[in-house]
C-alpha cells in the first residue's frame, strides 16, 4: 500500500497545484499547501499581514509602510492605537498565509477552448475508430483462432512481427502519401482510416483468448447447422466478452491520448483537434504552473473515470498463455 502511495504521489502535486492562486508561485516563502497572503483593510487600503518579532514575543501586524531599515505597522486587533514602529528589514519578515483554493485555472481553460466543438471532435474520432478497430479485430482474431487458414501460422507470425515494428519506418511514406497523394492534411481521415484494418496487438490478445474457449461448444452448434457468424455471436462472444470489452478499453485509452498523428495531420485545421491535442496545441496561450496542472487534470479525468468504472473486469481481461511461434 505504501508503494502505491509513493507511486502516485506526483498526482497529488498536480491536484494541489491546479487549485493554487498564481501569486503563490513567485513567492519563495509560500507554503506547499494552496494558500494566499492574508490582507486586511486599514483606512480603505489593503495591507499584508506579517509576523513581527518583538522582545515580548511575535505579533501579527499589518505592514503599512515598508522601508529598508524600519517599517510601520498597524495591529489589526486594535487599529485605533496607531502606527507601531519596528526596526529591521521588512523583507526578513514572514507573511501570514491562509488556505486558499481557486478554480481560476480551470475557468481560464473554459474561456480558451470551445469545449462543445472539441467534445464533438473527440466523439467522432474516438467513436469511429473504436467501432472500426473492435469489429475488425474480433473478426480477424476469430479467423486466426478457429479456421485452418493456408499458411495461417506464418501469417500470424507476421502479425506479431508488426507489433514490434518501429513506427517511423512506416510513417515516412504514409505521411507523404496521406499529405501529397490523398491531400488529407486537415482532415480526420489519417486518424480514423488505418484503424479499420484492425490492430495487431488487439488481434493478438483476442485470438489468445478465443483459443481458450473449448471447441466442444462450437461443435455442438455446428451439428445444429450454425454458420461461422452464428457461432461467433452465439458461442464465442458470450464467452469472450470481458476480453472484447478490455480490448475496446485499451483502444479507448490509446486513442484518447493520441496526440502525435493529430498534431501532424490536423496542423492546418486547429478547430478539428480532439480534446488532448487541442489542449496541447493551445499550450502557448497559457502560463503558470496552475494552468499547466489544470490542463493535465482536464485531459485525464475522462480516461480515469472510465478506468475506475471498468476496474472489475479490466484487470482480468488480459491473459497471455502460450505465445506460439
Amino acid at each position: 500500500m505504501l508503494v502505491v502511495v509513493i507511486y502516485l504521489f506526483p498526482i497529488s502535486y498536480m491536484a494541489l497545484t491546479a487549485v493554487k492562486d498564481e501569486a503563490q508561485f513567485g513567492d519563495p516563502n509560500a507554503p506547499v499547501w494552496p494558500s494566499r497572503k492574508i490582507e486586511l483593510e486599514y483606512e480603505g487600503e489593503q495591507y499584508p499581514l506579517h509576523i513581527v518579532p518583538f522582545e515580548d514575543g511575535d505579533r501579527e501586524l499589518l505592514l503599512v509602510q515598508p522601508r529598508r531599515n524600519e517599517s510601520q505597522f498597524i495591529d489589526p486587533k486594535s487599529p485605533e492605537s496607531g502606527l507601531i514602529e519596528w526596526e529591521g528589514s521588512w523583507r526578513t519578515l514572514e507573511p501570514v498565509y491562509e488556505n486558499y483554493f481557486t478554480f481560476q485555472a480551470f475557468t481560464d481553460w473554459f474561456e480558451i477552448l470551445d469545449f462543445r466543438q472539441v467534445g464533438y471532435n473527440t466523439l467522432v474520432v474516438v467513436g469511429l475508430t473504436e467501432i472500426g478497430v473492435v469489429v475488425v479485430s474480433v473478426l480477424v482474431a476469430y479467423g486466426f483462432a478457429r479456421f485452418p487458414i493456408p499458411y495461417g501460422n506464418i501469417l500470424f507470425f507476421i502479425l506479431i512481427g508488426t507489433i514490434i515494428l518501429p513506427e517511423k519506418i512506416t510513417l515516412i511514406p504514409t505521411y507523404f502519401a496521406f499529405i501529397n497523394l490523398f491531400d488529407w492534411q486537415g482532415t480526420w481521415w489519417p486518424l480514423i482510416a488505418p484503424h479499420f484494418f484492425g490492430s495487431a496487438v488487439l488481434i493478438f490478445l483476442l485470438r489468445q483468448n478465443f483459443r481458450t474457449i473449448p471447441k466442444e461448444l462450437e461443435e455442438a452448434a455446428l451439428i445444429d447447422g450454425a454458420g461461422p457468424m452464428r457461432i461467433l455471436f452465439s458461442v464465442i462472444l458470450p464467452m469472450a466478452w470481458p476480453t472484447v470489452v478490455t480490448v475496446a478499453l485499451l483502444h479507448f485509452f490509446f486513442i484518447w491520448n493520441e496526440t502525435r498523428l493529430a498534431s501532424l495531420y490536423l496542423l492546418s485545421a486547429p478547430d478539428k483537434h480532439p480534446l488532448v491535442s487541442s489542449m496541447l496545441a493551445r499550450g502557448g496561450f497559457i502560463s503558470g504552473a496552475n494552468n499547466l496542472q489544470a490542463r493535465a487534470l482536464i485531459t485525464m479525468v475522462v480516461p480515469m473515470t472510465v478506468l475506475f468504472l471498468s476496474q472489475k473486469f479490466f484487470m482480468r481481461g488480459v491473459q497471455i498463455t502460450g505465445l506460439e511461434k
Binding site: 506526483p10 502535486y13 493535465a296
Partner: peptide, 21 residues
C-alpha cells in the same frame, strides 16, 4: 487499478506533472 492509472494519463499530463514535480 491504481498501479495501472499512470499509464492511461495523456502524455502532456504526465510531462506537466513530472516537470512540475
Amino acid at each position: 487499478t491504481l498501479i495501472f492509472l499512470p499509464s492511461i494519463i495523456p502524455g502532456i499530463a504526465v510531462f506537466s506533472v513530472w516537470f512540475g514535480f
